[in-house]
Computed example of a mutant assay.
Amino acid sequence: MSNTVLYETDGAIATVTLNRPGRLNAMNKELIVAMVETMERASSDLAIRVLILTGAGRGFCAGGDLAGFADGEFKEEQAIETKIADLRQSMRTSQRLRESSFVSIAAINGACAGAGLSWALACDLRYAAQSAKFSTAFLNAGLSGDFGGTFSLTQIVGTAKARELYLLSDRFSAADAERLGIVSEAVPDEDLLAHVRGKALQMADAAPVALRCIKQNLNDATKLSMSEAMDNEADRHSRCGTTEDNTEAAKAFLEKRKPSFKGR
């Protein structure tokens, strides 16, 4: 397997590290293929409750590697239908981050642009190093955007701000990203991974069934009517109420101790 994407697990937490530090983890074909494989692997492992996505070195992911566009790596002679199908398959990585049962956290340690920003936006939570820089970047590369960035950014910041960020393609700072709600918090660079891991541990220690159902409820809120979403809420809430973990949570609260959840 390619080493352009590293995958490691520690209990219920998986860490995915984009590993082309010399290119700020920009996407080439090898990295994209490795990311597809990695996300399929993670999404099929039901033991994983939280996944951290980060980058090696000074960057999170600078988007598509422009050197690849310049030397023709992304311009093979193919029918346009084949190009579309191949890209759409690669873009499933963003869907895995959003739709898989685990909670996904982007630890944005540096440059975050283009499709790299799209990956970050697809995550459930985002934290950034204070030195991180952001840009939608596609317009500057003569492209319209992929990996779900326009969809995710519109949901996070609203239509007006998403249009501004995409149509002007200006750079913005981690402080700006925090102010806009794109990241939950901008933290000192040296504290980022420890901070994110602390959040991951907090969720990994929570009741697994309830954690998974809460994510499903939140995903439903973006695509269903209120009535349909409440139907699903009622179903999931009632089922969570029949679990051993629900009983354990109540006992632990009354006994003033940390609960020991079993995921059932």
Rank of each mutant, 00 (worst) to 15 (best):
S2A: 13
N3S: 13
G11A: 09
T17A: 06
L18F: 11
N19F: 05
N19Q: 07
R20N: 09
L24T: 05
N28Q: 11
N28T: 07
I32H: 07
V36D: 12
V36M: 15
D45G: 06
A47V: 05
L53F: 04
G55S: 08
G64I: 12
D65F: 11
F74N: 09
K75I: 02
Q78E: 11
A79H: 10
T82Q: 09
R88N: 12
S90E: 12
S94D: 03
L97R: 01
R98C: 01
S104P: 00
A107P: 01
S118A: 15
R126D: 03
A137G: 00
G142A: 08
G142Y: 06
G145N: 03
F147H: 05
I156C: 07
R163C: 04
F172Q: 08
G181D: 08
G181V: 02
D189L: 03
D189R: 10
D189T: 08
D191W: 07
L193K: 05
H195V: 01
Q202G: 09
N217M: 15
D220M: 08
T222L: 11
L224H: 02
E228G: 05
A234S: 14
T242C: 11
D245T: 09
E248A: 15
E255A: 15
K256I: 10
P259E: 09
P259W: 06
K262A: 14
K262Q: 14
